[in-house]
Write a protein that binds this DNA or RNA. Structure first.
Lengths: 338, 338
DNA sequence: CTGAAAGCGCTTACAG
DNA sequence: CTGAAAGCGCTTACAG
């Protein structure tokens, strides 16, 4: 147990509270000898400053909130959320931050979360997972002036800081690869078209085709929901159009698509190449191992927290943007047909 | 933004700080008229007490930590963790607690988490997910005297408070059902035998057979890891023994088992009945809809938090225990063979 | 039932 | 470079 106070450490070190406080906070004005001695005492006693006392006087809680919007249908099946949570957890631990999770499931939650989170002194700042729903909260959060970073660009354009992944570009490159390797009829199973990622990844697909003067055929585009199931049914539909390649907006959907293809008696990649998005844990052990775009989630989370801390320390404006790239990972679900 | 202080509310209400504090904390010694007036002022201003100031003086942070042990192999694929996180989040929100998540991935994390969490004044208490690993941390946590509730019985017997689900009993009833409906060769795919749940659910299987004077056949018992994949491979193995029913220790494994059975050209439940455990979101939409045992996770989390709060408010001893039941849900993956 | 005062454990000007 | 003192925003005996 640890109930020592600054006072105790001061007494044990033979200096004043002020001095101990300075060494704890790395203030320059402490002589080397004193600093080392105090540090030694702190180490031996295992002293840790009382977080509440510190928060009260410094107006910093060293805690950030992660808000996950309500009604995410894939919360229980999509590895994205565990990955995200893990990423934020790691980033916070590295930066010595504590991380509180807020799941927003209905309007009351929204109200309650807002009123807690907007209390200055509670959270240093908020990470907010972008999604089409929960926008009311987002607006209120922005207005409240609390440091705020959106994970993924906001669905509608807003004056906010965010970290995003260049979905358009990444996907466009993957589809270009299919084109370069001789694929003639490339379909796509998109994410929900009321989410930013869903829209952007579809856009990437279209841009690649247009850049190569290929007319976009709406029949080769099916909207999914990121789930395995929706990939399966989407592929069933696409199969009527005889595609020789398909880009799906998530690994889960890619897995579903491969299931549909095999069920039809066709082969991946023999008859149809499949590219996913995410490179989540199940992508490489899949059969065949999935060609996909690797989301740099760990880095994404780290950048988000870094940005949040910068908002806290250096002010909210100007708005910050960080855009990361996904890496194209070629495995066995695609084949060169040229 | 909310930067009002008690002082402000006191002035606006024409009373002292003490009185405002009393109405906020529901102390009885406030006249009805004053109480209502102050409450009205609070409502209108949207005042919220400063959490750090409150925590400092009351020695309560109204925050609990959830520690998830390191090296959980199924963290990204098992819906258990999102479900658990959601459950704790809901319970905390109901009890007006904030919930901080600690993911323990390696030994440094363990050290860091312990030193933060054991600082009195940081967390009111800790919820600790039981697992075979992370036991060193568990011991230190117990020794530190911080209020602590284990989620699931600890792997080794210990002097701690915990909430558990009666796995032995629940499984035993499910297997009894198979027996009662004329199944003659019942196999099981267990969870890892170095986890409490893995052991207990296997025990339930054995008890049901023994109660019916059936000799336990080791060839009908295969150890899995809770994953779909391990259910698939486990079933492949069991298939050699021609079972007519199988209990798997998780829904994921049940799904994998059904995949293996279908691949063999056999039918569920026509040839083999399958029972899972969890009743997670994917159990009922499965084909056929899965007969399973429903974990009362929401209630489980709620009881755990209630216990933790009682530990905080009424002291650590005596150790508390709460054991919940799983509900047997009969759907389409089992058939009466009698 | 109500208020004035002390104190929780820190940080941070201020003076030396 | 160091210490004494004020103050962060609350709660809680204590006195009335």
């Amino acid at each position: 147990m640890n109930n020592l106070t600054l006072e105790d450490i001061a007494r044990k070190s033979g200096v004043s509270r002020s001095t101990v406080s300075r060494v704890i906070n790395d203030h320059p004005n402490v002589s080397k000898a004193v600093r080392e001695h105090v540090q030694e005492v702190i180490r031996q006693t295992g002293y840790r400053p009382h977080p509440a006392a510190r928060a009260l006087v410094s107006n910093r809680s060293w805690t950030c909130g992660l808000i996950l919007p309500r009604a995410i249908p894939t919360f229980f099946t999509d590895p994205y959320y565990p990955c995200l949570i893990q990423g934020i957890s790691q980033a916070c631990s590295k930066k010595n931050y504590t991380f509180s999770l807020f799941l927003m499931e209905n309007e009351e939650d929204e109200e309650q979360i807002f009123s807690r989170v907007s209390r200055r002194g509670f959270m240093d700042g908020i990470l907010f997972q972008s999604y089409q729903i929960g926008d009311a909260l987002l607006d209120k959060l922005v207005d409240s002036g609390i440091p705020l970073v959106i994970l993924g660009r906001p669905f509608q354009n807003r004056q906010v800081s965010y970290v995003d992944i260049n979905n358009i570009d990444s996907v466009s490159k993957a589809v270009q690869y299919l084109l370069d390797t001789g694929h003639k009829r490339i379909g796509t199973i998109t994410g929900p078209q009321n989410t930013a990622v869903g829209i952007d990844r579809r856009m990437g697909y279209q841009q690649a085709l247009q850049r190569n003067k290929i007319i976009v055929n709406e029949k080769l585009i099916v909207e999914g929901t990121f789930t395995e199931e929706s990939g399966y049914w989407g592929m069933k539909q696409l199969l009527r159009e005889n595609p020789d390649g398909v880009f799906t907006a998530s690994d889960q959907m890619a897995l579903g698509a491969m299931r549909a293809i095999k069920e039809e008696g066709l082969d991946v990649p023999g008859d149809i190449s499949v590219i996913g998005y995410d490179d989540f844990p199940m992508a490489s052990p899949a059969h065949p191992a999935l060609t996909t775009l690797r989301q740099p989630i760990a880095q994404f989370c780290f950048e988000a927290l870094k940005m949040l801390i910068s908002l806290v320390e250096d002010g909210l404006e100007p708005y910050r943007r960080v855009i990361l790239q996904s890496e194209f990972v070629i495995r066995d679900s695609t084949r060169d047909r040229s």
